[in-house]
């Protein structure tokens, strides 16, 4: 089996937003639509003991994606390699998947009348390239690979992170993207 996932090392993220820009360029995303955003979490604490971190957010490519379960046309689907995609030929723009997504990472493109979301640059993955956000990241904060391959960089990162590997709230969907944060307290 293959399970492509992304791990983001928040200790290495400098909040430059270049991943968001690269994503828009690579995927030709409409104005006002994002597959990827960098959120600022914090600051927390009292001066001078303040802390914050940057949180790059994309579709979590869940193990049990509710967006796929609720899609009436089966336009939302999960590939064998774990990437969750939307087939725009089938999408009727009912936006039910937006309601079902716990993370607000899907958007309705009014101009196209369909749902847009992060594809993990599936077109690049198919030719053995990494997603655009991974290749552009100056801090090498993003790690992409096959979680089922114990020798992959992403598997090693997950093992080494141990309890410092964090995920978004799980309401039964089992989010796939992991966040490594050791230097500050996880608050997301």
């Amino acid at each position: 089996m293959t399970r492509k996932i992304m791990i983001v090392d928040l200790d290495r993220c400098i909040g430059c937003h270049s991943c968001a820009v690269a994503c828009k360029q690579e995927n030709g995303i409409s104005l006002g639509v994002f597959y990827n955003k960098v959120r600022t979490v914090g600051p927390f604490g009292n001066y001078p003991d303040l802390e914050l971190y940057y949180l790059p957010v994309i579709c979590q490519h869940c193990n049990k994606p509710e967006c796929v379960n609720v899609c009436p046309t089966a336009a939302s689907y999960k590939r064998q390699d774990g990437i969750v995609l939307v087939d725009h030929n089938k999408c009727i723009g009912c936006q039910y998947c937006i309601m079902a997504c716990p993370y607000g990472v899907r958007t309705y493109d009014k101009a196209k009348g369909v749902i847009e979301k992060c594809t993990l640059c599936a077109h690049r993955v198919e030719v053995n390239e990494v997603p655009a956000c991974v290749s552009i990241c100056p801090g090498k904060a993003r790690i992409f690979g096959d979680l089922d391959d114990p020798n992959s960089e992403v598997s090693k990162a997950v093992r080494e992170a141990g309890s410092f590997l964090h995920r978004f709230a799980d309401v039964g969907n089992e989010p796939g993207v992991g966040y490594i944060l050791k230097s500050r307290k996880w608050r997301s």
Binding site: P72, T73, C91, C94
Partner: peptide, 24 residues
């Protein structure tokens, strides 16, 4: 009028486990 592509409405039977398909 809620749908982005109502002309594709018959795709809606692609997943009858979906609440929207059952509703329809």
């Amino acid at each position: 009028f809620h749908l982005g592509h109502p002309e594709k409405i018959f795709h809606i039977l692609g997943n009858i486990r979906s609440g929207i398909a059952q509703e329809l």
